[in-house]
Design a protein around this nucleic acid. Structure first.
Length: 240
DNA sequence: GCGACAG
DNA sequence: ATCTTGTCGC
């Protein structure tokens, strides 16, 4: 596990954070299909918090896309760098996630994020932000529809319906299990929406959520449980 | 102005 | 996200 220090230039106010999003959103690449599902590697990233102790823990878990076996994993902990504000989730999660990705011993391949990409008030959610900063293909798989609207997909696994911001399709409500609440898929960076949905289905053969997010969620919770309170130094590590 | 709102 | 017991089902 590695420790993270919040970057000195990290946004402090909501206004600064929105300005960063407006500046970086132009760099999202939308005209690439992305890697074919079932090939290469797929990496899940997730973050857990203890706001009382001001601690954040991130995990990255690399899976073989064909077998869904774990190939590598890493964690990072640090202080919570930004409050939770709807639309600004990325500023809370990204420093720790980048540190976990840096600590991986192999290339991550496609990144699967817990949250949204283009389905975002300014079309620049966590998945798109991580994609632009790393250059990696990314998708977002969220558990809730956020502010968007959708019709109920048909019951069979694989059915989907458009996730709409007004009349614009910003993502898809995708059924990964028969008659179970859908997940909400959106494009992050360098992946098409069709391909993002295909990846999501390939990663969720048994449970509602993709194996990538299930593994990353379990790992970051373990890392959080084992983390020292912020500002507490151990063996030379500087917390404050 | 009020409520809703990824994690 | 996180706080939380038992319970129904494969």
């Amino acid at each position: 596990m590695t420790t993270v220090r919040t970057p000195a230039d990290w946004p402090v106010t909501e206004e600064e954070a929105r300005a960063v999003q407006d500046r970086l959103r132009t760099r999202v690449v939308r005209d690439e299909p992305g890697p074919p599902p079932g090939t290469g590697r797929v990496t899940g990233v997730d973050v857990a918090y203890d706001d009382e102790r001001d601690v954040v823990a991130a995990a990255a878990v690399v899976l073989d896309a064909a077998t869904l076996d774990v190939v590598a994993e890493s964690t990072a902990v640090g202080r919570v760098p930004f409050p939770y504000v709807p639309g600004l989730l990325a500023f809370r999660e990204i420093p720790a996630v980048l540190a976990a990705l840096d600590a991986l011993p192999c290339p991550p391949g496609l990144l699967v994020c817990d949250g949204y990409g283009l389905a975002h008030p300014r079309r620049f959610g966590l998945a798109s932000h991580l994609g632009v900063l790393t250059g990696l293909p990314t998708i977002g798989v969220a558990k809730n529809p956020f502010t968007f609207t959708h019709e109920e997909p048909d019951p069979p696994r694989g059915s989907s319906s458009p996730l709409l911001a007004g009349s614009e399709e910003v993502g898809r409500a995708l059924r990964t299990r028969h008659a179970v609440k859908p997940v909400f898929v959106s494009v992050g960076h360098r992946v098409s929406l069709d391909n993002a949905c295909a990846h999501t289905l390939a990663l969720a053969p048994r449970y509602r959520l993709p194996e990538t997010t299930r593994r990353a969620d379990a790992l970051c919770r373990r890392a959080l449980a084992g983390a020292a309170p912020a500002g507490h130094s151990v063996r030379g590590e500087c917390g404050a």
